[in-house]
Nucleic acid binder design. Sequence first.
DNA 1: AGGAATTTGTGCGTATGTATC
DNA 2: AGATACATACGCACAAATTCC
Lengths: 243, 243
Amino acid sequence: MTTVDATALRNPQRPGPRRQEVVAGIKDYILRNRLKPGDLLPTEAELCEAVGASRSSVREAVKILSALDIVEVRHGHGTFVGRMSLNALVESLAFRGLLSGEEDHHVLGQVVDVRQILEQGLAADIISVLDDEHRADLSTLADEMVDLASQGRDFLEVDRAFHLKLMEPLGNDLILQLTEAFWQVQAIVAPTLRTEPEDRLITAQRHRAIVDAATAGDPEALRSAIADHYAPIRTSIARAVQS
Amino acid sequence: MTTVDATALRNPQRPGPRRQEVVAGIKDYILRNRLKPGDLLPTEAELCEAVGASRSSVREAVKILSALDIVEVRHGHGTFVGRMSLNALVESLAFRGLLSGEEDHHVLGQVVDVRQILEQGLAADIISVLDDEHRADLSTLADEMVDLASQGRDFLEVDRAFHLKLMEPLGNDLILQLTEAFWQVQAIVAPTLRTEPEDRLITAQRHRAIVDAATAGDPEALRSAIADHYAPIRTSIARAVQS
DNA sequence: AGGAATTTGTGCGTATGTATC
DNA sequence: AGATACATACGCACAAATTCC
């Protein structure tokens, strides 16, 4: 036998375009066989035979599924079930932001809004699940950010780690991935703004304030600290819109 | 002349796979020419010539971009700039939910968590921007839901309209689209649960309570009403996990 | 109404690059 | 290092859908 049984893929006559039948067929195949991320799929040739379509159609369908991270293609190796990450959300939103940017940065502003809403909305939960270890980690990250910022260096990766660490103890993968996704969108779109070095230092220090408020256990103070943390980029956006 | 000038697409030697160069090239083309959603792109043949790739590669690249709704292909008509909706998020998340479902519904649970967090996190803002017209609309929708539920009929579309209406006055397109996206994911994944008719009636009535709390202008009461509204589906999920 | 032109959709054959054993 | 299996890329021919004359 080959890699897997590919005969369970055939689906009766569906009206739509060929390529979309293949997309649905591959999805059905994954569901029917209870495949998990990382599992191997049939080869292109086997998929062709199974669904009765040509390589072109199968390839285009696989490309659509890979764009959604439903499958993952490794050149010369095979096609595997993907991790269904939110990369597609990042790609789509980031491009929308780049397209609307350059003049009016309203998409970037909306992303900042959502990030703030999520973190503020979770303030009470964050406090209630925060333990000493996470608090220490956050504190270290905040200190690193202030150090880097005071040296005039950027602290992108530390900032990313901080916001992920803040959400981590909640134990909700989706929230973690949304946090990551919106952070990435902002990281891609924000460079179209010119940011003042002073603002960067202020932003770094505001992370320190977030840790302090969380440590104090005051949800209202934490919500304020989070809002303050996003204030510099909001003013940057407002400044860019005026000019 | 043809549709547009396609000669501004060429991009010098990039290391990656051919198809990905084409993806980047088409993105650059859209950005460089400041195209907006709905604008026409060059034909496949023109794109091939512009980027120096074969039609197969161009087509696969276009399919990737169409999966992200960055472009939209209309058979026999042409390729256009897409609306960059969050369909990709829905597809990816919904499939993840279907894959994890059938036994443990933890993805569905996380989606419910996020929906609740967003609505609760925005409770105060919702109250502060709510005007009489929106309140009346929400009230009508809630009544419709109770009517339908008491007749044993489903009220999917009304439910969708209600949650969108709740977010609408905030004036943030992204929040609106995220609300829509998560609602759709839940609508796709939730049918793998068997829901009791009683729960549906209770859910309908809880929308009435949300409107009342928002009208009263009490943020804390609104947050409670929102949490209560998601309680039935949470118990359905918990019940399914046990069995 | 009808048919030609344009554009995307599909199928197939072949050659090449790449990873694994 | 060689062999095998696989995805990648290219080019052409024809089908299907849409538009326009």
